[in-house]
Amino acid sequence: MDWGSLAGLILGLIAIILGQWVEGGQIGSLIQPAPLVIVVGGTFGAVLLQNGLGNLVRGVRMLRSAFVPQADFYPALTSTIHSWSTTARIEGFLKLDGHISAHPDPFIAKGLRLVVDGIDEQKIRDILDIDITSYEREQRHAIKVWDAAGGYSPTIGILGAVLGLIHVMENLSDPLMLGKGIAVAFVSTLYGVGLANLVFIPIANKLKGHLQLEILKREMLADAFLCIKQGEHPHLIQERMSSYWHQGH
C-alpha cells in the first residue's frame, strides 16, 4: 500500500470536513445521497459513452495501482541483464533459451526469443518498438477514463445543482422543502469539484507516472536485447543501462 497516496486523499477529505466545522456548519449536511448518485452516476455514464466499456473496465482495474507503490525495478533488472549478457557471450545465444521460461513477463520472453532465434537486429528493434507503442497506447486509453472523469465531474455537479434549484422552485410554498433542495444544489457542486480535484485527476496523474516508468523499463530491456545481440561486453552493457536509472530518478 502506498501510504503517502492514501494519506493525501484522507488529508484532503479531513480538510473539507474541518473547514465545514470551523465555519459552524453541520458535518451531516455534507452527506447527501442524491447529489452523490447524480455526480458519480452521471460522471461515469459520460465516461462510458466517451471511452467504451472495455476501456472503462481496464481503467477501474488500474485503480489499485494508484495506491500501490511501484517497486524499484532497476537493481534486479540490471543484475538479470548482466546474467543474460554473460551467458550469451560465454555460452552463446542458444543458452538464453533456458531463461525464457523463468520470466513470466511476455515482453521479456519475446525479447529473449528474438535473440535466441537469431532475428536481425533492426527487426528486433522494430518488433519491440511496436510492442512498446501498442502497450503505451492501450494503457493511456485506460488512464483517460480518470482524466475524463476529472473533466466531466464538475459539470455534472453543476447539473445536480440545477436539479436542486428546480426542486426548490417547485416547492416555494413549502418552507420545509426549500432547505433540502438548496442543500442538494450546493452539495452537488461540492461533490463534482471535490471528486475531480481530490480523486479523479490525482489518480490519472499517478497512473501516468507509473506508465512512464514502465515504458522506461521496456525501453531499457529493448536496448539490452540489442546490445546482447550485438555481442557487446557485459560490463559495457551494464554501464549503458545505468543511464536509464538516471532517467527514472
Results as ranks from 00 to 15, higher is better:
Asn205Trp: 09
Gln50Trp: 00
Asp117Ser: 13
Leu213Ala: 11
Lys229Leu: 04
Ser243Asn: 11
Leu49Gln: 12
Leu30Cys: 05
Gly52Asp: 10
Thr133Pro: 05
Arg137Glu: 14
Asn205Ala: 12
Gly19Arg: 01
Ala109His: 09
Phe107Gly: 14
Arg125Cys: 02
Ser153Glu: 02
Val162His: 12
Ile14Val: 15
Val193Cys: 00
Ala34Tyr: 09
Asp2Lys: 07
Gly8Ile: 01
Pro35Cys: 04
Ala183Pro: 01
Leu30Lys: 05
Gln139Arg: 13
Gly248Leu: 07
Ser5Asp: 08
Val184Thr: 14
Thr86Ile: 00
Gly118Tyr: 05
Thr86Ala: 11
Asp72Met: 04
Trp21Ala: 12
Gly157Val: 04
Gln139Tyr: 02
Ile182Gln: 02
Ile81Trp: 05
Gly209Ala: 05
Ser242Lys: 14
Ile31His: 06
Leu165Cys: 03
Trp3Ile: 10
Asp105Met: 08
Gly4Phe: 12
Gly160Ala: 08
Lys144Asn: 13
Ser188Asn: 05
Ser83Met: 14
Val47Arg: 07
Ile16Asp: 06
Leu165Gln: 04
Gln247Trp: 10
Lys144Trp: 01
Leu195Asp: 00
Trp245Met: 11
Leu30Tyr: 02
Thr78Asn: 13
Asp117Gln: 13
Leu30Ile: 05
Leu216Gln: 09
Ser242Tyr: 09
Ile143Leu: 08
Asn171Glu: 06
Val22Ile: 12
Asp147His: 15
Thr155Lys: 00
Leu226Asp: 14
Gln230Asn: 13
Ala222Trp: 10
Gln20Arg: 11
Gln230Lys: 13
Met220Arg: 01
Ala222Gly: 07
Ser242Trp: 06
Leu112Pro: 12
Glu91Pro: 01
Ile81Lys: 04
Met169Thr: 00
Ala71Tyr: 03
Arg58His: 13
His167Tyr: 03
Gly164Arg: 04
Leu114Arg: 08
Leu236Asp: 07
Ile27Asp: 12
Gly150Leu: 05
Gly41Thr: 01
Ile124Gln: 14
Ala224Cys: 10
Gln238Ile: 03
Met1Glu: 06
Ala34Cys: 03
Ser5Glu: 07
Ile127Cys: 05
Ala196Leu: 00
Met220Tyr: 06
Gly179Glu: 08
Gly98Phe: 00
Asn197Val: 00
Lys144Asp: 13
Phe67Pro: 06
Gln20Met: 09
Ala71Thr: 04
Gly24Val: 02
Ile90His: 15
Leu63Ala: 10
Leu236Met: 10
Ser79Val: 06
Gln230Ile: 03
Ser83Cys: 10
Phe225Gln: 11
Ser101Pro: 00
Leu159Met: 11
His210Gln: 09
Ile203Trp: 06
Met1Gly: 05
Leu165Asn: 06
Phe200Tyr: 10
His210Phe: 00
Ser83Lys: 15
Asp105Phe: 02
Ala148Gln: 02
Gln230Arg: 09
